[in-house]
Amino acid sequence: MTTGTPKEVITAAALTAPSARAQERPTNVLIVGVGGQGVIMISKVIALLCERQDLDVKQSEVHGMSKRGGSVFSHLRFGQRVYSPTIPIGEADVLVALEWAEGLRWLPFLNPETGTFLADTQQLIPPFSCRSRKPGAVTNYARHTVAEVAGKVPNCFATDASRMAAELGNARAANTILLGMLSTALDFPEQEWLTVIEQLVPKKTIGANLRAFAAGRTWVEQHDPAAMHAEAPAVFPAAADLGDYVARSAPEINAAWCKGCEICVKFCPERCLFMNDRQVAELKDPDLCTRCRVCERLCPDFAITLHRLDA
């Protein structure tokens, strides 16, 4: 075991007496986000802190599909003795979310009586959420606001950490800001955090990461979880407003002009066109058609028209 200066060790012991700790259940920290955001870096920092304090620690992730832009999580448990590598539902002491909707996904894991939710309110909207081609379509991105969540969890600290990081000069350090926030929720001396961060991040980014860490710590100290509704995130416009929406008919195909090139059939995103036995394009499912006009624009013979219904 590597130890810091004697002073730090005493501080750590003072925070939680070993005898008390032996009786304790493990401390559970769940870190979630999207592939590439630095979830694993946060969990490495805590794991190393625990090793330095000679605590038992388990850190569990699932590799594979998750790195392809999917949801990523890391269970971290530490204490005198840790058995299960995963955190039971409702038992996470801290839930750290590097992305807003990912935080919402894992909220059931947070301890409903004492848990602390630390979140970056930045929203990464996956293409999967932009599937509808209908006019006025809104993404299916989660719509719960910080105020709403703050009302349902014991402690909620949410802020646009990505923007804070960008303002500090390194947009990629958002995870370190969250780490700074997390440092206020766990019993490790501040110097230990700094030592471990210095040890784990690339040399040339040490300065930026330490600034980000301090910013996260300060932010929590200055904010009251009860007032979290003031920190409303920029929720994607749920606009039912159709703007300059123009109602149109389904594609009308001029059979005489169609030479049967099949371009419209191949490119129709909803697959609602087909070639009939006369080798002319025909609409098979007007209900499926979103009036996206791809066929109209791609037809080399100007054989397809979607008429304005207001004219």
Binding site: V34, G35, M65, S66, K67, R68, G69, G70, S71, A101, E102, L104, R105, L107, P126, F128, S129, N140, Y141, A142, H144, E148, V149, K152
Partner: peptide
Amino acid sequence: IKSMPRPP
């Protein structure tokens, strides 16, 4: 509170 799917 519900989130949306985020497949790989």
